[in-house]
């Protein structure tokens, strides 16, 4: 473990808590893409299958359980409890155009052709594009609530910090995972436009309006 990965995980944790807080306090999931949340649940379900088979550390297991349970809770809140406030008219990204190519790529490009490894690879690729329905929805609605902006900033920062973690681990531990690094860079690049808007607008107290 290093400081970059620790702050990254905390940023990821913060993002999920911010989202749950927004939904719980406003009793609404307006402006949130349910499709992205389903993709995140799929990412965690396919990545943490080794939760019961390989023990890494208490921290690792606790975080995996937290991510799986909160992602399922988020999907439940969006599609059941606060379903009336779910904005399905603007959440129209065709996720099959993400899941199918990502599924195929995971079969073709992976470290080892085994079920667990292919599912892990699928999860890594899927996570890199899972935010697209959310960004697409924001471009259609033309704006985002401030707390949703904070959620996205924390979520985008987590993988950006993981990139620093991989640089650190490469130089100090000789650790390098090309699949995770490439997908992590793609994922972070997708947030760049939002990061720009967040830093130039939200931090000055304005609301984010798209297209900029």
């Amino acid at each position: 473990m290093n400081i970059f990965r620790l702050i990254g995980d905390m940023s990821h944790l913060l993002a999920i808590i911010l989202l749950l807080l927004k939904m719980w306090k406003t009793r609404s999931c307006a402006g949130i893409s349910g499709k992205s949340q389903i993709l995140f649940a799929l990412v965690f379900a396919s990545r943490y299958l080794d939760l019961f088979t390989s023990f890494v550390s208490v921290y690792n297991s606790v975080m995996k359980i937290f991510f799986i349970s909160t992602s399922l809770l988020t999907v439940y809140l969006m599609y059941f409890k606060f379903r009336a406030t779910y904005d399905s008219n603007h959440d129209t990204f065709r996720v099959e155009f993400l899941v199918i190519p990502v599924g195929g790529l995971a079969f073709l490009v992976n470290h080892e052709f085994s079920p667990l490894e292919i599912l892990w690879t699928f999860s890594i690729y899927l996570e890199s594009v899972a935010i697209l329905p959310q960004l697409f929805m924001m471009s259609k609605t033309g704006e985002a609530e401030t707390i949703t902006s904070h959620y996205l900033f924390a979520l985008g920062s987590y993988r950006a910090l993981y990139i620093l973690n991989w640089v650190y681990r490469y130089y100090f531990e000789g650790f390098f995972d090309l699949i995770a690094v490439v997908a992590g860079c793609v994922q972070t690049i997708l947030y760049c436009d939002f990061f720009y808007l967040y830093i130039t607008k939200v931090l000055k107290g304005k609301r984010i309006t798209l297209p900029a």
């Binding site: 990965r5 390989s54 890494v56 550390s57 975080m63 995996k64 892990w120 973690n165 650790f175």
Partner: peptide
């Protein structure tokens, strides 16, 4: 080939 390195990242 590299031994099965345990996946220790989230």
């Amino acid at each position: 080939c590299n031994h099965k390195k345990k996946k220790d990242e989230l």
